[in-house]
Design a protein around this nucleic acid. Structure first.
Lengths: 331, 331
DNA sequence: TTGAAAGCGGTACCAG
DNA sequence: CTGGTACCGCTTTCAA
């Protein structure tokens, strides 16, 4: 900046005012202003954000700390949503992964503190309750896809309970009332499993009916295929199936097809997550989507507007994606 | 640091040497050293990386610029691999997305330059040729999953040609020689399509045979299902099918199953990418994996060791994941 | 309307 | 072995 000032034959101060756009209120001579601007272009002046940050303690950078978003492909949108939302405010993200290792986490946070990031997004791949490191309590922090046990920090999570209701309603709306089965163990994921199930039960109950039963299995295609297949072979005859996620639905599809049962003619299927898979299956699978990008955007919004004011946790609606896997019940 | 020095009743300089671990060669009095260390702990001293960077021009941060990794779920490993590899060297990553917009890209690079990142990783979702912004020519840059037209910068790409050979060999090894069909349009992705196909043709040719033909279609389940289905209905009777990616393979699976043809008894299938999907299909799909994490690690390694020395582009081997989708040909 | 100068928190040179 | 000090590039107060 000194060199710009020199080239413009003025002082660093004046150049500073011009270059930071404070020239309006400070009534800098138009002539001077021009010289500064020209000098800046000629010298390809770039403000040094380190120097600026050193002085102002503002870095326009945010730390995005996640446990292991990597392993779950579709959760990448948590990161990209945050990056995009932050970029709109002129912020850049330091994206970090702790792999669930508390020591690594501590050292990362130390490093981030040394870099004076302005805020922290603490994200989890699975919606769950977390214990955030004590250091973060003193920093501007928002939890993404997770909740603090003490609800001490603003948090953004998907509205799983409503999603459960919506899944049930998708079936109810088409006339299903009986032989509605749930596939997947409700307890697997602290929040998603329990809340989805709760929502489903509520909606069915409101409609004067209830789940015919549950086929317990891990949330993966293989176990779903095995367990649900065994259920069918035992005489199970569902009219509709609610799968706790798309991977389970894949296993259910495979089990049904292997037995010559048609979707949705014989059995309707609805699921959760709306991963890529859902649209690729045949018939395309109806699924309640995880709104990762919106959640991330909301988290950034909370950071930008001092989320402390907001009611939290913030529940983000999960969009219903209706496709051909739901039909009327067999008459 | 001044306060640490004060509390330790010594000078900033001495404190600096102790705190930066230069105390060995400089023979600082053990007693003084202790006092400094204790003061640092008591005062919870944290070096300010902005101040340090301002002085040394080193920020221990790397920019990761990608076009739109977001849209393609499994490409997330390019980012996470880079984050993990960089973390091992004490570097943090600014992860950015341009969405393919040149203006946004330019403004991002400007911002990154203002922050004095030490190096740039310019990544592409699809393996392709790119035109990197001129500014990056003057910075330490490595291309990830893409190539500069003029091969001016170090680049890391998957070894698609060898992958093509490997896919063909997976079939040849089981005895397939005739009625081997390729599904997917070879030209879709500049490098992947052309090189995979080339490798396949080479391997088959080396074995004294050749492709029976190609079923042209976009690399998505739906078009693959349609085109390959039509091919079968027209009397197509493949012994083995090489799909240009897993999504195509999904469509092929669906088309085969709809017609009662069994995999691998009637038809063997091999594919590329090894996305999550591959392991979930029934039977599990043999696929040549995109080694995104290794590629990213290699890119970071090049940056750390001054990759200018390396032979480039660096080709990273694509691992063969053999699963049950390949069997011997019908006799 | 413009300029001088102190200071953010480190680094590194030089003197003692 | 230890201390003094200039300086990195920008912000901000105070004076002119």
């Amino acid at each position: 900046m000194q060199d710009v000032a020199d080239q413009a034959r003025t002082s660093k101060t004046t150049a500073h005012y011009v270059l930071t756009g404070q020239d309006q209120k400070l009534r800098i001579a138009e002539e001077t202003r021009r010289r500064v601007l020209r000098a800046a272009t000629e010298l390809r002046y770039r403000p040094n954000l380190m120097a600026k940050g050193l002085r102002t303690q503002v870095t326009r950078s945010i730390a995005f700390i996640s446990d292991t978003v990597a392993t779950e492909a579709y959760a990448g949108n948590l990161v990209y949503g945050a990056i995009a939302a932050a970029a709109e405010h002129g912020y850049l993200l330091f994206v970090c992964e702790t792999g669930g290792d508390p020591e690594l986490e501590a050292s990362l946070i130390g490093d981030l503190a040394s870099r004076h990031v302005d805020a922290y997004v603490y994200a989890s791949l699975f919606t769950r309750e977390v214990q955030i490191p004590a250091e973060l309590h003193f920093e501007r922090t928002v939890l993404l896809n997770c909740l603090a046990a003490d609800n001490s920090s603003p948090a953004v999570i998907p509205d799983e309970r409503q999603a459960g209701r919506d899944a049930a309603c998708a079936l109810l709306d088409r006339g299903h009332r009986r032989a509605i089965w749930l596939v997947g163990e409700p307890g697997e994921q602290v929040l998603a499993g329990a809340q989805r199930t709760e929502g489903i039960r509520q909606a069915l109950s409101d409609a004067g009916t209830e789940l015919a039963g549950t086929v317990d299995c891990k949330w993966w295609p293989e176990p779903a295929y095995e367990q649900f297949g065994a259920f069918l072979d035992d005489g199970g005859d569902p009219s509709a199936v609610i799968c706790l996620n798309d991977r389970v639905a894949l296993g259910v599809y495979q089990a049904l097809k292997a037995r010559g049962r048609s979707i949705p003619t014989d059995v309707s299927v609805v699921s959760f997550d709306d991963s890529d898979l859902a649209a690729w299956l045949q018939p395309p699978l109806s699924s309640i989507a995880l709104p990762h990008r919106q959640m991330a955007a909301e988290a950034i919004r909370l950071l930008m507007t001092d989320g402390a004011l907001a009611e939290h946790p913030v529940h983000v609606a999960m969009p219903v994606r209706l496709r051909e896997s739901i039909g009327p019940p067999r008459s």
